[in-house]
Amino acid sequence: MAKPTDDHEISRRELLEGAGATLAAVATVSALEAQPAAAQSVTTNDTVPRTTIRVAVNGMRHRIEVEDRWTLAELLRDRLGLTGTKLGCERGECGACTVLLDGTPVYSCSHLAVWADGRSVQTVEGLARDGRLDPLQQTFAEHDAPQCGFCTSGQLMSARALLNANPHPTADDVRAAMAGNLCRCSNYNRYVEAILAAAASPRSRG
C-alpha cells in the first residue's frame, strides 16, 4: 500500500481553506497508519476546475483563467513570469513569498489565485517606478542587506507595507513588523538598518 509521507495527502486548496484543526491533524497523522492511496478525489488537468479572474498586478490589469488550485504565488511566478517572488516553504512559515494585496502584505503561497479576483497585487517587480528604485531597494543595496538574497523580495514587501502604514518606525517597530520574514543568512541587523535608513530618506513616501 502507498503511504505518502509528505503533505501530499491533502490538496493545496484543502490545505489553504482548512481550519487550524485540519493542519494539526495533518501534522500528527502517523504515516504508519494505513492511508489508502489516492484517497482524495483525483483530478487531472483535463477536468480541473478553472475560473476566470480579473486582477491588477503592478498596475497592469489582467483577465486570466486560473486553475482553482493555483496559489497566488503560482499565478505570479509560473503564469505571469514574475519570479522575483520566491517560495521558501509553501506553508506560510518564512515570508519569502510576501506580496501586497490591496496594500496589505500576504503570503502568496498561502493565498489562492482565485482570491485575488477584483484586487490589486504588488510584487517586488513593481517597487521601482519609472526606472527609479524604491528608497527601500536603494538602502537594501547600500547596506548589503541581501546576503544570499532569497528572502529579500519578501523582506522588501513587508518593509514597504510597514513604511506605508508607519513612515517613521523605531527599530523595535521594524522587528515586530518583519517577524514573519525569515533570513537564514541571519542578516537581520542589516535589514533593520536599511529599513530605518529608507524611512529617514527624503523619498521615503515615494
Binding site: 519570479t83 522575483g84 517586488v124 528604485l133 543595496a141 548589503d144 542587506a145 541581501p146 538574497g149
Partner: peptide, 16 residues
C-alpha cells in the same frame, strides 16, 4: 563596497 549585483538582488531580477 555594495555588491556588483545588488540591484539585481533587490529588484527580483536575480535568477535562482
Amino acid at each position: 563596497t555594495p555588491r556588483i549585483d545588488a540591484v539585481d538582488r533587490v529588484t527580483g531580477r536575480a535568477t535562482y
